[in-house]
Design a binder for these strands. Structure first.
Lengths: 336, 336
DNA sequence: TTCCACCGTCGAAGCGCTTCGACGTCACGC
DNA sequence: GCGTGACGTCGAAGCGCTTCGACGGTGGAA
């Protein structure tokens, strides 16, 4: 293994000079820097991560905590993860993957052993046992999602409440008077997952504000469940003309089911969704949707974390405003 | 931060004794061990990962390389990942997540900086540029999947060729004479992804061996594509009665499409698939399938890696034999 | 009883890097 | 002409842990 002393000798300087040339923490003459860089290339030098971490008390590793509970939409989560990894790399950091098998102990372990410098936590519950822990940890962290009490934490997420409202407002603006929300699987609500609940809040508030008749329907992530919900909606709410879907997995099957039941989209039924843009745009009937900007969220979470690591102050709460894209699934309500 | 010298002082022993008590590499008296353990608990001691890595030249971190190329089925990949993480934890290792953004350089980097002790590589191509690199790296690695030339590498995978054969044999055994393979998206074949090609090989070999008429149809991962393939199959192959599906994303839409086109499963059309058992079993028509044992593969990959890290010899190739589970989607061919 | 082997523990020497203080040199202002 | 900084570099001291060799003590074999 080639080490910093080898490089130093080869370049005719001291090891500390090599270190400073690498880190830029002290000025080094152009000439010396060139020689050092040449030596590094020639010898194929790579600084030892452990030695670096020990001496600098910085591991340059972030922990990404992905619970992967049931009912979540895996591809979306994976988009976050990829975006976190690539953004972290632009800041010269790597990403350690933690699932929830270990529970809170895992977080404490990687933090206390100095394996990671900071943590990104996904799938935050309204009352999340990890939150108090994270407040006590001496390492910075960023949540993707909001718990009930975000005080003292740095959180970022799509403004799901506003997203829910926006979907309803759009339908209301098109003249729809009876709307339904097809939401996440029941277990997501039982766990009191923050974002799901906030969509419900926004949906309900906007419906009430506009004097709409509304109802809420959790839905399992299977086409069969989608069909059942569709049938139920038609039988129970004959006047229904607007649906908000917050469930990536059933968006397409749901549309299929409606059409098989004789309802054309958007002729008889207008649909808005909260989901990744790529999904909404790729469907047979492209769906008017509020984008779920996974990649942006992941990237911004990393940026926030980097700022905190640099000792900078960051806002505790970052809510991305919802952005609605009009597509083919919405139309004005037919005259009755 | 509490360190090993603090524990040593508190327990009235030397730091090396604490270290040996922790690692078990030298005998320590019962009595002393108890005192040390008590001190560790009392002080909340956690060994510093970097220091440990530096002194022992073991980071206790594995790299998991997930390319996430287009056309792959994300949930399946994620199952691997989770299984790798949890298994690694049982061996006191953590997992660093690498995507393919960085390319081969990323592998080299984490290996050369001693950030990781070993690597697990997924989504292996037939001619994979990472393979030569891995052969030269001084760290052990395990591939999930087989390249064209696996010499000098440790590879593990489901025996996809046998799986393809098994699916066909099952259909042949039920009397079907005209069969089709609905496969992965075209880009997967263009990239020459190993497992996809092997399924084709097995499918073709078994079809020929049994004198069946057969055809192969790559398929995009969308319901619309599934429908198109279904229609194409019906128009071009009127006598078709057996279909093998190797594409998780379109399995359900494909069945729907067939039924909408007037073909009942398994009455008119028998279907076998290669996919995770949970998926096959959860469909409206539970599908006779060869299990894709993601969790087992991930776990066994880690076990292999641990053996290699311990200096033990392991087989270069591990092919898990396919296991077919009979479900509701297959039946004997109707009399013509 | 003597010798040897093993057990349990200790002290010290690193592992490869960062960082702090120090030092020589040079340019500039007064 | 001298003091003063800034610049560029060096040496040495750790960062917290593992591991090697050494050493006293104990028990069994001879």
């Amino acid at each position: 293994m080639v080490k910093i002393t080898d490089v130093a000798r080869h370049a005719g300087v001291s090891p500390s000079t090599v270190s400073y040339a690498l880190s830029g923490k002290r000025p080094i003459s152009e000439e010396t820097r060139r020689r050092i860089e040449a030596s590094i290339r020639e010898l194929g030098y790579r600084p030892h991560a452990g030695a670096r971490a020990l001496a600098s008390s910085r591991s340059n590793v972030l922990a990404l905590v992905i619970p992967l509970r049931s009912g979540i939409h895996v591809p979306v989560v994976m988009q976050f993860a990829v975006s976190v990894v690539t953004t972290a790399r632009t800041h010269d950091h790597d990403v350690l993957l933690l699932t929830q098998e270990e529970g809170e102990d895992g977080l404490r372990r990687v933090a206390d052993t100095a394996l990671v410098d900071a943590l990104i936590v996904m799938d935050v519950q309204l009352h999340d046992p990890r939150m108090p822990l994270l407040r006590t940890l001496d390492r910075p962290s960023v949540m993707i999602g909001f718990p009930q009490d975000p005080a003292g934490l740095t959180c970022i997420d799509l403004d799901f409440m506003a997203a829910g409202e926006l979907c309803v407002e759009r339908l209301a603006g098109l003249g729809h008077r009876v709307v339904a929300l097809v939401g996440s699987p029941p277990e997501v609500y039982v766990r009191r997952t923050a974002f799901a609940q906030r969509v419900v809040q926004g949906f309900t508030a906007a419906a009430d504000r506009n004097g709409l008749t509304s109802s809420i329907h959790p839905c399992e992530a299977s086409p069969a469940a989608a069909r059942r919900v569709a049938e139920q909606l038609l039988s129970e709410q004959a006047a229904l003309t607007g649906v908000v879907v917050h469930n990536e997995a059933v968006l397409e099957p749901l549309i299929d089911a409606f059409e098989q039941l004789g309802l054309r989209v958007p002729g008889d039924l207008s649909i808005t969704a909260i989901c990744p843009d790529e999904l909404a745009a790729s469907l047979r009937v492209p769906v008017t949707s509020v984008a779920l900007p996974s990649a942006e969220l992941g990237a911004r979470a990393v940026e926030l974390l980097m700022k905190k690591l640099d000792g900078a102050a960051v806002p505790e709460a970052t809510l991305l405003p919802p952005r609605l894209t009009e597509r083919a699934s919405t139309a004005p309500r037919n005259a009755p």
